[in-house]
């Protein structure tokens, strides 16, 4: 679990996860588009995310595709946010979104 929090404690890595959330299954080249760091640095960040199991990869031919793997985050969620709190938290989250949209 330390790996997960360390991996998440970086804005570039969070952006990479956001991109995979928006479109799952991307190559390094696709993930480099519009990011202000080198391809080598992107690969390094992806390796850290993969080590933390937040990113899962598969090869198809010569291409390596990266996927957002939410399972460790679900583990964290299950550990600290009980089943019975879910509806109240959803309401708070909806309220926040509503107020911030105005």
């Amino acid at each position: 679990m330390d790996d997960v929090f360390q991996a998440l404690a970086d804005p570039i890595r969070r952006e990479l996860l956001d991109r995979l959330f928006a479109r799952n299954g991307q190559t390094v080249s696709e993930l480099c588009v519009g990011i202000e760091i080198s391809r080598q640095a992107v690969s390094k960040h992806l390796n850290i995310l993969e080590q933390a199991n937040l990113v899962a990869t598969v090869f198809r031919g010569r291409e390596k595709y990266h996927y957002l793997n939410p399972v460790p985050i679900v583990d964290i969620y299950n550990r600290w946010i009980g089943k019975f709190q879910q509806s109240q938290l959803q309401e708070l989250s909806d309220l926040k979104r509503l107020l911030e949209e105005e």
Binding site: N24, N53, T57, V58, G61, E63, Y67, V71
Partner: peptide, 12 residues
Amino acid sequence: MEKPSFVYVIYI
């Protein structure tokens, strides 16, 4: 071969 829609990994 098509790439999958989802890939999930868990260590048990």
